[in-house]
Design a protein around this nucleic acid. Structure first.
Lengths: 247, 247
DNA sequence: GAGTGGTCTAGACCACCTT
DNA sequence: AGGTGGTCTAGACCACTCA
């Protein structure tokens, strides 16, 4: 399994970083592939002779780097590669994940009709308290949950939307059943921590670093078609944008 | 003595998350502003009666969320707001930070001429071993270091570049002295951990979450003008992109 | 039921920042 | 010089997963 080569160790270097390096090396050299389980913390403890807290510090480090991830009370695993998301392309999740040779999945966790909060009312330019559809979904890549999203749609634009099966591309449903497609997209991304609901539903420990992506889609008339807040595992996504000066 | 039975929810909630909530509340309610120092760990320890490890777990959580940050062996501080970076706009760091009412700063840490590695040679489409300029800079907002960058430039395009003072906008130098400006930009972003050099130079603990931004600028002829790797503090940046269908 | 990670305690010593 | 966070130890019990 994991091999512990002797590295030129600086006496000044904390033990947990030395351990990190040893494990990282095993992963980077391809000795252990994505999905492989690491030895248990107590096993590493007895192999390396350090306290469990120190082991956990090293593992947390590798997790922050995206090299490994944990499955609650199951173990630590080598991370699969991230998918690339390009906000300038208009492909939905299902499509761009598939294009990258991975298997996308979608689960609808909940769908409600809610009264618009003042914030949402502002975004949709409707009166506060007006009804809005709220859809919560979990999306997976190769079976591993990678993001939780909360989509808000104005019922005035897509009546009876909640009657459709939402376990597939919402973009497709809006286009095929309602003739709606996005003309303008506003995307906001920022590093965050996954906490509370999002952490629980992704099966990660609260406080795991993540990426919050907020998308607002407008149609040609400037109406908000879809307002989407996505909470990504930080190790599952990378963003790529290619831009030329507009002629 | 009145005993309050633990509600199921409270019982399930770890102490460190409860402490997190108390501190977070103070920050969100604006009782403590950006830059304020929190009480020391040992002070929090005696106030709350929990072990120091538990206190540190709560603080690490808040750090991951970007609400607080640490200054090595000095203390924990409330984070200032993040700046917004828009890759579709062509403004340099100095400009967009200033536009957001903050004070940008740049320090040149090192400048070298290096032989192109095979990776860099590929990017610049030059022979491996050809000379390249490598510039390392640290950039600050309101005096706080927020990113480290490693810029690579082909000397063939900008001879004697290293003789200029690089403590300002490189974009400006390239335009004003060499008549070079970017025509196409390729931007890649992904969550990462700040380790080794980058962590040290930003003064953060190794393993702090960060954002790696890679920018490749091309001129009209398709030549690579600038290849830039930026390592950001995760709590200092957010990305905003606004896109319309190209007509 | 055995093993896993999750949480927590109560210490200790160190390097470094601050004054 | 005193206080701070950084690192580390050696335990403990729990909730949960997995076979």
């Amino acid at each position: 399994m994991i091999d512990f080569p002797d590295l030129p160790d600086d006496a000044a270097r904390p033990q947990y970083l030395a351990l990190r390096d040893r494990i990282a090396l095993n992963i980077e050299m391809g000795r252990v592939g994505p999905g492989t389980r690491l030895p248990s913390e107590r096993q590493l403890q007895s192999e390396s002779g350090t306290a469990r807290g120190t082991i956990r510090e090293a593992l947390a480090q590798l997790e922050a780097e995206g090299l490994i991830y944990r499955r609650d009370r199951s173990g630590w695993y080598v991370s699969p590669p991230a998918v690339t998301y390009d906000p300038t392309r208009w492909a939905g999740f299902m499509r761009y994940v598939r294009e990258q040779g991975r298997v996308p999945g979608t689960e609808t966790l909940a769908k409600h009709t809610i009264p618009a909060s003042s914030g949402l009312a502002d975004i949709f330019r409707i009166a506060p308290g007006s009804p809005l559809f709220l859809i919560e979904r979990r999306r997976t890549i190769d079976g591993r949950p990678v993001l939780i999203e909360r989509i808000t749609v104005d019922p005035a634009i897509a009546p009876d939307l909640l009657d459709h099966s939402l376990d597939c591309s919402l973009t497709d449903i809006l286009r095929d059943h309602y003739g709606i497609s996005a003309f303008r997209n506003r995307v906001d991304m920022r590093p965050c921590a996954l906490i509370k609901d999002a952490a629980e539903r992704l099966g990660v420990k609260s406080g795991t670093p993540g990426l919050k992506v907020t998308r607002t889609s407008f149609d040609e008339a400037g109406r908000v078609v879809e307002y989407d807040r996505e909470y990504w595992r930080h190790d599952a996504i990378r963003i790529h944008v290619d831009l030329s000066i507009r002629i």
